[in-house]
Design a protein around this nucleic acid. Structure first.
Lengths: 114, 114
DNA sequence: ATGTAGTATATCGCTATGTGTAGTACCAGT
DNA sequence: ACTGGTACTACACATAGCGATATACTACAT
């Protein structure tokens, strides 16, 4: 089960991070804390930071540096136009996925032949 | 986007295959055909067959051989008790995932800064 | 000044898994 | 014999989460 969840997070992590950043501009450590409060998507640093770097390289988020009073400087990330588009596409895919899942679950083993 | 979908399938594939097998006992090739009709989860042979082997090694599905009139003998797979349990756990996790997703999307950026 | 703790980011090796490609084998129709 | 559909297997490759580790800045206690 644990391994399944780990595999499921591949890809889902991106969806969640973009969703979090849509709501609010945040730095990596803050994203980490938001996600760690969720039962289902408690990612670790070694997932979040590389993911943010990938999203940035892909042009889906932009970042600015900001000094912190409580530690080293932060990198605040914001969704770009492309990031918003991507997030919209992800939501569409997600909705389709739910439909397809219901589609194959829908015709449950009935008492008819087939 | 395509790469994202590929990553998303890691883990999701298992969920879909178990769901298909819950509905009906099927052989690998038939599972492949069912999934290939879905927009979102059109897996290839090189994903489905190893996945079935893994699920079988894990004790989540059992298989029996059956002669086919249209080709080589088939391996018909059935969900075991453990498989059904796992599927139930997956559904719970899936539901939780949906809630968590709504949770972080819920407090959307209000109509302030925009 | 040294140590500890929390904040903040980055990197390495490991592992699991979907994909592309190719191969094997069985059957039917031409 | 050839072609095409059925049914399954195997291998190299790329992706990405995870544990462990490293670095560095700040604050506070010893």
């Amino acid at each position: 089960m644990n391994s399944w969840i780990q595999q499921l997070r591949k890809g889902l992590a991106e969806f969640f991070v973009l969703s979090v950043l849509e709501k609010e501009d945040l730095h990596g450590y803050a994203v980490l804390q938001v996600l760690s409060k969720l039962e289902t998507m408690a990612l670790t640093e070694s997932a979040v930071y590389p993911l943010l770097a990938r999203l940035r390289n892909g042009g889906y988020i932009a970042c600015r540096s900001e000094k912190s009073a409580s530690g080293p400087p932060r990198r605040i990330y914001t969704l770009t136009i492309e990031g918003k588009l991507r997030l919209r596409q992800m939501r569409e895919y997600w909705a389709e996925l739910g439909l397809d899942l219901k589609r194959i679950q829908g015709k449950q083993r009935e008492k008819d032949g087939n």
